[in-house]
Write a protein that binds this DNA or RNA. Structure first.
Length: 195
DNA sequence: CGATAGATCGGCT
DNA sequence: GCCGATCTATCGC
């Protein structure tokens, strides 16, 4: 716990936050603040993956060189390269279970993000897993690192926003599973949620 | 707008 | 070899 001059309390997210059902974590992360070296914003879109999920890199519980971070401690980062070009950032819950962070509403270090992304439009800075990683400079060097300490900073949401659910994006297997969570009518998500 | 092609890496069969 | 938890540019309507 950290006491602010205004008397507000800021809790830091700790390991136990992630040591529970992965869908619960994906939902609870909506509205939380994520930053890397002071650059980041509010999480507005997540997806959950686990060992029973054909779309998951951890499907069947098989451990490989790529997915080993997905079996790390609760709170560990799982960062992998997507389509040979982009990076995608997940936070591990229980072993083999992880939440893909898909979009942020930028609040901290916006000029840095704009420079890294070579664009000004705030709504496109972190709207998608690859864009978010570029904006926050998340790369494979952070794979396996704990998100519970520097350079990461995670703090829980103060008020629970209205969270909506839908099918995941950009996958071919188990595409119908309702494991995408996000803020309804939010301009910062990678794609709108259908009502 | 919606659809599509191309970029480009690494894990896996 | 093949294909993917993506993004961007560039088509066509």
């Amino acid at each position: 716990m950290q006491r602010l001059p205004a008397g507000l309390m800021v809790r830091a997210i700790s390991r136990s936050f992630f040591d529970r059902d992965v869908d619960d974590v994906a939902r609870a992360l909506i509205g939380a603040t994520l930053s890397v070296n002071g650059v980041g914003g509010l999480i507005v879109e997540t997806e959950s993956y686990d060992v029973a999920d054909p779309a998951s890199h951890s499907y069947g519980g098989r451990r490989t060189a790529r997915n080993q971070a997905m079996f790390g401690a609760p709170g560990a980062a799982y960062v992998y390269r997507s389509y040979g070009i982009h990076w995608c950032f997940n936070i591990v819950c229980r072993p083999g279970h992880a939440v893909l962070i898909r979009a942020l509403e930028p609040t901290e270090g916006i000029p840095r993000m704009q420079g890294r992304r070579h664009m000004k439009d705030i709504h496109l800075l972190c709207a998608g897993p690859g864009r978010l990683c570029e904006a926050l400079a998340i790369t494979g060097t952070l794979n396996g690192a704990s998100t519970l300490k520097a350079p990461f900073h995670l703090s829980p949401r103060a008020d629970a926003p209205q969270v909506c659910v839908g099918p995941r994006i950009g996958i071919t297997k188990a595409a119908a599973a309702l494991r995408r969570f996000g803020v309804e009518n939010c301009r910062y998500v990678s794609r709108p949620f259908r009502k």
